[in-house]
């Protein structure tokens, strides 16, 4: 039947879109990054010098790699207790109740707020609070960025962890209760051990989100092209340096920024792959 053949052909052709797209993305990034890698070699990754002055141009990504890793890990550290207790609240203590559903929707709301709104809010509402603590002069820096980043990734870690915690069989928990364990003991000796790899994966996937977040970080990190010297020191992440400098870049600088994009692509792909792998093994 010809209708059948046309339909099948159309479906197949459309599936090529993503194939070509993926190939195109990788090729374009590689092609764009090539001049920078040719010029600087491995030094592009290991050096933290970022000097766009004409004549003595030199670009290294280390400061931004460090900025990205530090802010994301710090965000994850802040996120873990929040997401962990919220997922226990939703999937264990109040599982199946109205309270749990309300909390779940509130957390989902957090996931829906655009990154730029987080950045703006952080800039005008959170930053003054941090300045008021006296820990920082301007309120810009790694810590501010990480704090907002943590709030942004909490919903991802929470919803996945909650789902995994709620999958722990009731009969296992009941077996522990029937031996006299308290709820906390059941959580630590049965629930968490059974859900461990899933919970870890949910935090890895949240980390993957944090690594690529752009706007909020760009508005809060202070935009200094150096390895951050402290918790309240300014820095730049891979995403934020691209956001800040791509517009006025050309030539070697543009290639350097694309190369940073390529590195970011690889890092996030790796982290996401790891998270998905653990989830698949778990299920």
């Amino acid at each position: 039947m010809s209708g059948d053949r046309v339909t099948k052909a159309l479906l197949f052709i459309s599936s090529l879109t993503i194939l070509l797209l993926s190939a195109g993305i990788v090729i374009s990034l590689l092609g764009g990054a090539l001049p920078a890698f040719k010029e600087f070699g491995v030094r592009f990754i290991t050096s933290s010098v970022w000097n766009p002055t004409e004549g003595s141009e030199e670009y290294g990504a280390m400061a931004f790699i460090a900025g990205t890793v530090i802010t994301s890990i710090l965000a994850l550290i802040i996120c873990i207790p929040m997401a962990f207790s919220t997922s226990l609240f939703i999937a264990e203590y109040y599982n199946g109740t109205r309270t749990s559903r309300i909390l779940r929707s509130l957390v989902d709301l957090l996931a829906g707020i655009p990154s730029i709104v987080y950045g703006f809010w952080g800039f005008y509402a959170l930053r003054p609070l941090l300045v008021a603590t006296g820990l920082t002069d301007q309120g810009f820096g790694v810590f501010t960025a990480s704090l907002v980043l943590a709030i942004m990734i909490v919903p991802y870690a929470t919803s996945l962890s909650a789902e995994i915690i709620s999958m722990v069989p009731a009969e296992l928990k009941e077996a522990a209760y029937s031996l006299g364990a308290t709820r906390r003991e059941v959580i630590f000796s049965v629930v968490i051990p059974s859900a461990r790899s899933g919970i870890i994966a949910s935090f890895i996937l949240a980390l993957g989100r944090a690594l690529g977040e752009t706007m909020a970080v760009t508005m809060l990190i202070g935009n200094a092209n150096v390895i951050p010297k402290g918790l309240f020191a300014p820095g730049n992440t891979m995403a934020s340096v691209i956001a800040n400098q791509f517009g006025e870049a050309s030539g070697l600088k543009m290639s350097a920024l694309i190369a940073i994009g390529l590195l970011l692509f690889l890092i996030t792909a790796l982290v996401n792959y790891l998270g998905k792998l653990i989830i698949k093994r778990f299920a």
Partner: peptide, 23 residues
């Protein structure tokens, strides 16, 4: 194809900006 879609979904949006810029 499904794995590609999964990977693409995880790509930071700023990188897609670079791509659309180049293309």
């Amino acid at each position: 194809i499904r794995s590609l879609a999964e990977i693409l979904q995880g790509v930071p949006s700023i990188i897609l900006g670079i791509i659309a810029y180049i293309w």
